[in-house]
Amino acid sequence: MMRKLYFASTATFWIVVLGFWAGSALTPGVQQPAVAADRDITAAELARHATPADCWMAIRGAVYDLSPYLPDHPSRPSIIEPWCGKEATEAYATKTKGRAHSGEADAMLPKYRIGRFAPGGAQ
């Protein structure tokens, strides 16, 4: 019985993995989520959104509102929450022993983009 369960579950797993791959391969182009009006966001404005409930971060010149994503982040809150309201490119690029976040994270980010980061811009 356990032998059957092993072979059935393993076969089903690979079929579903292939299904995800086929779904991705058959998707025409990269689906970019709708981006809000790309306005300039200054360091001061960024700093006003520094709580887990209202968490903006600047990464590679863009500002993201990551408040809805924080509960999904796999690490414990104390790792990501201190970066709310800050320029976090370095933290994003050096997650684990100097390695960058995954392609999955890169693909997810545009959904949360709210503007360009203009550190020295007028308020």
Binding site: F20, S24, Q31
Partner: peptide, 9 residues
């Protein structure tokens, strides 16, 4: 996003 689903795996 189907692409994101595959990126996860």
């Amino acid at each position: 996003s189907r692409l994101l689903a595959w990126q996860t795996l």
